[in-house]
Nucleic acid binder design. Structure first.
Length: 347
DNA sequence: AAGGCGGGGGA
DNA sequence: TCCCCAGCCTT
């Protein structure tokens, strides 16, 4: 009953999306990685950009990581872009440039976990692997009244088993699309459309009036505060950039020489700090301006950032391993985190 | 098992 | 504000 109703609803209410109605595993892979933890509306323009720039997995593999990250700029979770690039190369080397469609092979590729392997293998080859994403957790927990936390090991196991059980009576490709679409459009997280829901008569959460308490999640991410003091060195038309190579946020993207402090720094505290002296090195520098404090919120940290604009009479960066000077017109080819991009747009 | 990893949108 | 989004990887 559940499977039939969800499928019937889907056939009437499905959105037309550019990655549907294809069984090209490469195109489906593009869309699935972009959509991880990302709403369709937010990912859509990126899907078009990537599809246009990289017509084939070979073109993707031949690109530079810098270019891939630049295309990905603004979408977040940048490891997705780095992993995609690695996977494109692996497909060239290990699969002769033919994107695999088998679940077990897909799982071997970077950035592809159980969900994405199930999605690609079912959509491209109709393999019977159940997708279990946020939409599926929500819909199943409500309809069957399951209160096991979805972020527990037991919960993941229970929902996965149920999803696979339901898939037995279904057409994998269509039903996997259907159950996610139903969760995204009909059984939404907040204010789901229960009044017009074809499942409501049998929905445990609806009958018991606990729709908005499900699904249950136990862990909450705690947010860390960080204080960034960016030094924007300018010499005539050139700016000093930094490549972020540390194991930290925004890996392999670009920003400016950075002094991070445990708390908010006054101008005096910044100027007398050892970090500042070290970055200045032998440069003679004039402070031209300082930006307002920009607050940048990530899911797991809040960054308070100030940009110090420094006029510099000569170029040297001996104290910075990953520093290099770039002409202002060249900035557009570097991938910047949103925080830095926001600053650059103003200045 | 827990924590890290972006950015945006809805209520 | 808080929560969630077509999750995955490392520790």
């Amino acid at each position: 009953m559940f499977v039939q109703e969800v499928t019937k609803w889907y056939q009437i209410n499905r959105r037309t999306l550019p990655w549907r109605n294809t069984n090209d595993a490469y195109i489906i892979w593009l869309s699935e990685i972009i959509l991880q933890q990302t709403r369709v509306e937010q990912g859509l323009p990126y899907f078009y950009k990537f599809q246009e720039r990289f017509k084939t997995v070979k073109e993707f593999a031949l690109a530079s990581e810098d270019e891939v990250l630049k295309l990905w700029q603004g979408l977040g979770y940048y490891s997705r872009a780095r992993n995609m690039h690695a996977t494109a190369k692996a497909v060239m080397e290990k699969h002769h440039g033919v994107f695999p469609t088998r679940y077990e092979q897909l799982l071997q590729l970077k950035g592809i976990g159980e969900y994405t392997a199930a999605a690609i293998s079912s959509f491209s080859a109709n393999e019977p692997h159940a997708v279990v994403d946020g939409n599926v957790y929500r819909l199943l927990s409500r309809f069957f009244g399951i209160s096991t936390p979805i972020d527990s090991t037991q919960g993941r196991k229970q929902f996965k088993e149920l999803a696979y059980e339901l898939l037995k009576e279904a057409q994998p490709a269509e039903y996997n699309q259907a159950i996610m679409e139903f969760g995204a459009i009909q059984c939404k997280p907040a204010s789901p459309n229960c009044a017009e829901c074809p499942l409501s008569v049998n929905c445990v959460a609806f009958i018991e009036g606990i729709v908005n308490t499900l699904p249950i999640k136990t862990k909450k991410t705690k947010v860390k505060e960080r204080f960034f003091n960016y030094l924007v060195f300018r010499n005539n038309n050139d700016l000093l950039l930094n490549k972020r190579i540390a194991k930290d946020i925004w890996q392999n993207m670009y920003d400016f020489p950075l002094i991070e402090s445990a708390n908010r720094l006054s101008e005096k505290e910044l100027l007398i700090s050892d970090d500042f002296k070290q970055l200045i090195s032998t440069k003679s520098v004039i402070i031209k301006a300082v930006s307002e404090e920009l607050k940048h919120v990530l899911s797991h940290q809040v960054i308070y950032a100030k940009f110090w604009e420094l006029e510099c009479n000569h170029q040297e960066n001996s104290t910075m391993q990953n520093g290099f000077w770039v002409a202002e017109e060249e900035l557009e080819s570097y991938a910047f985190p949103k925080l830095v991009d926001n600053y650059l747009k103003k200045f």
